[in-house]
């Protein structure tokens, strides 16, 4: 029978030399040239932890080592295992504990008394593949979690029944000023400011006023959807802070108003003294007693005033365009 030629990197923590020799024999029956790292104590493995890299395939762990055993051992090994699958080696007497260890995240267990080359090889292959899938799932979960947590838009999730927040992302914490744990003690009303809305209704897009922890009122463009979150009916609400843009628009409106006032002043106030000058120059020119020399000067004055009048007219025409564009 052909042996598997793939280069497996395995760690075996086993203090019983007899068991280890047997294990090695079974392994060599199926695998051509495995790279094996053998430790007899937990301490030896612990000293080796810096050299444990994700390219290791499996850690085999005997549950009763002289310096550590049982639950304690599992927890300690998991800390340094870099998510490499751990397969527990145990005797009949510990089978029930081996079963519960699966719940702790142990990949598999093998009963030493039943061990043979086939079961060992099958377990190695199976757990390597299983771990590959687990890594993919973890990555996918991480991706979804990142989409929520790292989203630049503040997102809050709250329970439809209790209206208590279930989860909020980093951007929501930054926007509202409540810490993540403070949020979990708040109800959705605590961030609403004077909002009379049905909290179970979905909102397509609505400009709402919300309030921050420091009491500051902000304008947000809010959208919400109903989702199932950890088995509960919940609402996910996305709040885009538009306070700055709204204030910006208000400022522009205010400036526009001022501009119109200036235009009004041009047309009404500035033109008053100008119309006086124009009227007076006309009177002086009409006066029979005005000398020719004075007349010439007055004509120049009259022209200057007319020029000024033209400029004011241009300003009034331009300001009319502002009003029309509204």
């Amino acid at each position: 029978m052909l042996k598997d030629k793939k280069n497996y990197k395995l760690i075996v923590v086993e203090d019983n030399i007899g068991d280890f020799i047997l294990f090695e024999e079974y392994l060599n029956e199926k695998i051509e040239n495995p790279t094996l790292f053998h430790f007899e104590r937990f301490k030896d493995l612990n000293d080796f932890q810096d050299k444990i890299t994700p390219d290791f395939d499996i850690i085999f762990l005997d549950l009763s080592l002289p310096d550590k055993n049982g639950l304690d051992l599992i927890i300690e090994v998991q800390k340094i295992s870099k998510q490499i699958p751990i397969i527990v080696l145990t005797g009949y007497s510990d089978e029930s504990f081996a079963t519960t260890s699966l719940a702790l995240g142990i990949s598999d267990y093998l009963l030493k008394d039943d061990l043979n080359s086939t079961t060992l090889y099958k377990s190695i292959i199976y757990n390597i593949e299983r771990n590959k899938n687990l890594v993919k799932i973890r990555e996918s979960e991480q991706l979804y979690s990142d989409l929520f947590q790292l989203s630049p838009l503040p997102i809050c999730v709250y329970d439809i029944e209790t209206l208590l927040f279930i989860d909020v992302n980093e951007a929501a914490v930054n926007l509202y000023g409540h810490s993540h744990s403070e949020f979990l003690n708040l109800k959705v009303d605590d961030i609403f400011h004077d909002e009379e809305i049905d909290k179970t209704e979905e909102i397509a897009s609505k400009i709402m006023t919300h309030k921050k922890k420091n009491g500051e009122i902000i304008f947000v463009d809010s959208r919400s959807n109903t989702i199932t979150f950890n088995g509960k009916k919940a609402k996910i609400i996305l709040s885009n802070d538009i306070t700055k843009s709204l204030n910006h628009i208000r400022e522009i409106e205010l400036q526009n108003q001022k501009l119109k006032e200036i235009a009004w002043k041009q047309s009404h106030i500035v033109r008053v003294p100008l119309s006086q000058i124009l009227g007076l120059t006309q009177l002086i020119l009409d006066d029979k007693e005005t000398t020719q020399e004075t007349k010439e000067l007055i004509i120049i004055l009259n022209n200057s005033a007319k020029e000024l009048d033209k400029i004011i007219q241009e300003i009034i025409t331009k300001s009319k365009e502002i009003s029309l564009n509204e």
Binding site: V272, S275, Q276, G279, L280, Q282, L283, D286
Partner: peptide, 15 residues
């Protein structure tokens, strides 16, 4: 209300 305007207009009316 503008005294200068009134003055100008009065003068022109008389002219």
């Amino acid at each position: 209300d503008d005294a200068v305007s009134v003055l100008i207009l009065k003068k022109m009316l008389s002219n």
